[in-house]
Amino acid sequence: MHRFLLEGLLGRPLTEKPPVPADIEELGAAMAKAAQTRLGRSLSIRQVDAGSCNGCELEIHALNNAYYDLERFGLHFVASPRHADVLLVTGPVTKNMAEALKRTYDATPDPKWVVAAGDCAANGGCFAGSYAVVGGVSEIVPVDLTISGCPPTPTALLEGLLAILEQSARPAKAG
């Protein structure tokens, strides 16, 4: 145990340079609202699997590993939608999960953002048209940002989340 701790103290960190935040136009309107400065440079994320194959979850998990180290940016995952600023939603929304997703959204306090992560969350992906699938996340809740990929790489996820962070930390426009 001591050896591991020493190694961590003395060794070179594995954590890599952050990627450049994605330049995403669709975010602009959502972020222009007031009150966002209150959140400062920190966002709490609640992940919701609305029907994914679990591939996206694995890459979201990877954000916490030493290479990506999500928490250094002030981003962290929380256990309840009531503590969240961002809902990170994956999967085509299944009919069996639609109500749970809506209720999770309703339980999240304003201001809030919804990120649809992965091709299925964007438009249902290869499951679109199924009797058991509603479609993309925007069919159920308003989406502020879409991150594509099957699954999106941790770097792609990080770029998107950093873009939200940049926007939310910007002073709110007057009016």
Binding site: D49, G51, S52, G91, P92, T94, N96, M97, A100, F127, S130, Y131, A132, V133
Partner: peptide, 8 residues
């Protein structure tokens, strides 16, 4: 909950 109708 995550039934997507894959077999269909």
């Amino acid at each position: 909950y995550v039934h997507k109708g894959i077999e269909k």
